[in-house]
């Protein structure tokens, strides 16, 4: 079942950023979105959660156009994780995560025990329960990132859109985070679209890889079919070596030494 569909989506500011993107996120699958800086990855995520609207084409949530949904309904279905913006007020991490319950709660009133338990479970899932009582703006950027992810989990969406969730995380938490997202897709049938520059993590954990190049979708498919030397060299304009991971057999990408540079 398609949870989120980009249907021939065009978008641009003064010049086109995305052209004719068609991509669907299905229940239970993790899709990695790869591409160079400025390829339009973040713009695609903004379109996917409704903060931007396509100039041509449509974004469908299940079978309904995203623009037709109330923000509340949209938020019950789609969760976005981006870099945390600076918070100027003394909120605890738990209060921060509880804001994720907005779409499920009454607009007026207090958080229910269920809300609090969901928020705490989300913090435990992202290995951030120990920060619950700390001020959000006193956490390190890696710790904040886990709290932001916890807020999206507390939102209990069907689709998770993640913009470089591993950017500030240490190696252990990068792997833990992708294991968590993979588990959510397997166990709860979530669909996830993850922007990452950690190409080997994408190769290992993604069910499909979408390769965005100059505003168009160059390829989309299993890691083995998309993460090839030809395609990657074309996109990243630098010589890369692709072999197999000795344990998983998934593609493993490394830099080619300088003399083989083809750019």
């Amino acid at each position: 079942m398609n949870l989120l569909t980009f249907d021939n989506v065009h978008f641009g500011y003064d010049r086109p950023v995305l052209q004719g993107i068609t991509l669907e996120i299905r229940a239970g699958e993790l899709v990695a979105l790869l591409g160079t800086n400025g390829a339009g990855k973040s713009t695609l995520l903004q379109l996917g959660c409704g903060t931007l609207t396509p100039q041509r084409g449509a974004v469908l949530c299940a079978d309904e156009s995203l623009t037709q949904l109330s923000r509340r309904t949209a938020a019950q279905r789609i969760g976005l994780v981006t870099h945390a913006s600076e918070v100027h007020f003394p909120l605890t991490a738990l209060e921060y995560v509880l804001t994720g319950r907005f779409a499920h709660a009454r607009a007026f009133g207090f958080d229910t025990e269920e809300d609090v338990e969901t928020a705490l479970q989300a913090l435990r899932d992202t290995d951030a329960a120990q920060f619950a009582e700390r001020r959000f703006n006193q956490l390190s950027s890696g710790e904040r990132q886990r709290v932001v992810l916890a807020r999206a989990l507390a939102q209990q969406p069907q689709v998770l859109l993640l913009d470089e969730p591993t950017a500030n995380a240490d190696l252990a938490h990068q792997v833990a985070l992708l294991i968590l997202i993979q588990r959510l897709t397997r166990e709860r049938g979530l669909g996830a679209l993850v922007i990452t520059h950690e190409i080997n993590l994408a190769a290992e954990f993604a069910d499909r890889v979408a390769l965005l190049h100059q505003g168009s979708l160059l390829a989309c498919g299993s890691p083995a079919t998309v993460l090839t030397e030809d395609l990657l060299t074309k996109v990243f304009a630098t010589a890369l070596l692709v072999d197999r991971h000795p344990q998983s057999g998934k593609p493993r990408i490394s830099w080619a030494v300088r003399k083989t540079s083809t750019t």
Binding site: G50, R71, A74, I78, G79, H88, L91, A103
Partner: peptide, 15 residues
């Protein structure tokens, strides 16, 4: 939610 950020509030369900 607005206190954290208007865009984030929007994605979390605030009109």
């Amino acid at each position: 939610l607005m206190m954290i950020g208007a865009r984030e509030a929007f994605t979390l369900g605030v009109e």
